[in-house]
Design a protein around this nucleic acid. Structure first.
Lengths: 227, 227, 227, 227
DNA sequence: CTATAAGCGAGACGGTACGTCGCGTCTTAAT
DNA sequence: ATTAAGACGCGACGTACCGTCTCGCTTATAG
């Protein structure tokens, strides 16, 4: 996994005391046998493998443990539950998204749309993403974890594409008001990610080159409205 | 429930024989005691009640059955599982969405966006919707069911809004090519629904009047690109 | 079935009123469609068939009804439950026991022992007999029914064998006290039936010619003690 | 329970792999948390309690588990089903049978007959015994288990009574042929146990002092035939 | 170089829910 | 009134995972 630092590090037990530590990157330990790094890797690999084969619903902690050649205890020592484990296991997939420079804003948008669509075509990514999002609707901590591990990390693509377009003169430079800029970035991200996910997973229609073209045309037109 | 006709009509058992029939609107029965319509109503009401109180994760079939004053078997006679039941139970919530005529396309868009956001603010709707969508990523029959019961039914809002805008002269009349029209409707639907869901549930940011305004501005700008 | 007359005829419902009539040979009915005699036959045949194939434990009322081409209601109109039905279905098997005259009391005893053992070698007879006896340990009405339909009917074998032996001079004639005679008959019946059943079903040892010989020797010796 | 060693030691699952082990006395375990001996005791006590209160028919695994303060799974980890559990639970009742020395073979026989009758007068013993015997008619493993846990253990009474009678000179010493001796013991056991059970449970007549006297007279006379 | 402390594989544990099965009753329409 | 069909309320079944716990062992650092 890509060690996630920050918010959801460790958790308080019922008595309010700090428990040895969930996955968080920091190492508060001093003595005793250190945790096996092999186990971490094996567990996350096994998680992805099981996700592909069985999907979220059929994925069980015991199953993952067995495949990873690890005891269930080892697993629970590191992650609080299925959701947390799967978020970490899947986050890495989203880091592979890139924004190759295709020369125009429209082409760049089409490119990232199609990359995202390709990712959502992978059963494990599709299923795991929606499953953890579903879980997060009644688990704030999980929602934050997803935001950190997945959402916020991918905003870089919007930021980058925007800067390139500004450099090309396709978009005006940022105004003096930083808040407006941030609002626009969030909006664009929600529109792109939301539309692609909805098209692919809810409507169940293909996100192909033709759709990417039509969609990017709409988006570009919309962006012009902010000029 | 609004009886859903079509796809998931009955299913074959292991021996290939036709099983009495899941919920599907068709009536293959001729003899024997007819199924109780009261039970249907009671079950769906109970499902919504349990969803509100406990959420998707804590909803159990046994619990629903008890509250509905019905045997668990009666429940399984009509729905194959939790997901199918919940789809039918929540579908009706989406039917309450309306498109009040606010005088301009932008105002209409903002209105529907806010109605949709209000619906997603209900815990039972939010959780149940995402949960069944998550399930549907590895269950094609369920995906079709969602599409019929929820998605396709709400496209009416886009169609209506579009016609009104055309009557007002805000949008050009349909071209001769019906396919283009359908493509545009689908696109607009995916963009609106996708963006709102993503904003509300993934980004976790409020879908308020300000956001609705900014979003509708973007969308209107985009629609101009198709003129 | 061999219609059983007497004790367990009909049963009182919870309110103490007389219910239309269980199987009892009498016909209190006057109007309406008469009961099908075919159904009776088909049900009992089906019961025996299912007993052979599946045994008592797996025999279900629904299964019997289906095989008999009859509705479950029809079945319950005639028998109060599984036990009652099976008693009637199996009773006939015991009526096939005979006491061929082999010329001596010992040979006659050996003969009946082996016939009874052959009957207990049939899975349906063995299983059904023990199952209803087990049920009868907490169901007095069932115990009486078994006694009438099975036990008392087979005492004829003891009575007949005894009379023949008396005619041959192997046993003394009945004394003046009828009670003593009845006591002896009951005792002999319990000893023979009990020993054979215990040997065959509890000890699980074969009831073969050798055992029959040893057993009859013991019994004859014992009878001499009453002279 | 008195741990039963032998026959029913673990069982093969559908794939032929060895399953963790049902109750059998052997300990194939090496690693992991050991099974709780307290649980064993609590379960068997609870089983007997439920048998007394509700009888075999109303005894449910869930009920036993609850009363024993144990999870249902724990129960199924040790016993394959109701029958196996009840055999172990009632076996101990039979171990309480004794053969007090009353000074003569006839008196000893009468004594054991009446003790056995008293045991069969207990609803839990009567019902449970017959129920498991009935089950065993189509379950060889269960039959062996009953034989080990109940039947074979009580042969000690016959062996002891016989030795005492020989010491008193009421019976001749064992001949050189051990097989004959074993045959006789088995026969006597089947006759005593069979006759008492048949009288008590099938004929439904009282096993009182008078019957015990008449029966023992018959048996003694029979034994004389082997002299 | 021993003591202490945590990690680890294994698997039993108390729970909760599952989805199925059979029971015996009931509600239809058709004799 | 009886029949075939089949839905119904009920209750138990045996299984699957959950997340925790106890074992005996291993592998570190600290004294």
């Amino acid at each position: 996994m890509i060690p996630v630092t920050g918010a959801a590090t460790g958790h308080r037990d019922v008595l309010g005391g700090m428990v040895p530590a969930m996955h968080n990157g920091t190492s508060p330990k001093k003595t005793g046998r250190p945790r096996s790094a092999d186990a971490d890797r094996a567990i996350l690999d096994a998680t992805r493998a099981v996700l592909v084969e069985l999907g979220w619903g059929k994925l069980t902690m015991g199953d993952v443990a067995t495949r990873a050649g690890v005891a269930k205890t080892t697993l629970y020592r590191r992650w609080a539950g299925k959701s947390e484990l799967v978020v970490d296991a899947v986050a890495v997939l989203f880091d592979e998204l890139e924004l190759p420079d295709r020369g125009s804003l429209q082409a760049d948008i089409e490119g990232v749309v199609q990359q995202f669509a390709a990712l959502l075509a992978l059963p494990e990514a599709r299923t795991a993403l929606m499953a953890v999002v579903a879980e997060s609707t009644h688990d704030e901590a999980l929602r934050l974890r997803i935001r950190e591990a997945v959402v916020d990390r991918q905003k870089r693509l919007v930021v980058l594409g925007r800067r390139r377009a500004q450099e090309r003169g396709e978009l005006p430079p940022d105004g003096p008001d930083g808040a407006d800029t941030a609002t626009q970035i969030d909006l664009i991200f929600d529109v792109i990610a939301g539309a692609v996910v909805h098209r692919a997973l809810v409507s169940g229609e293909p996100v192909d080159a033709a759709w990417a073209r039509t969609f990017s045309t709409l988006l570009l037109g919309g962006l012009a409205a902010f000029r």
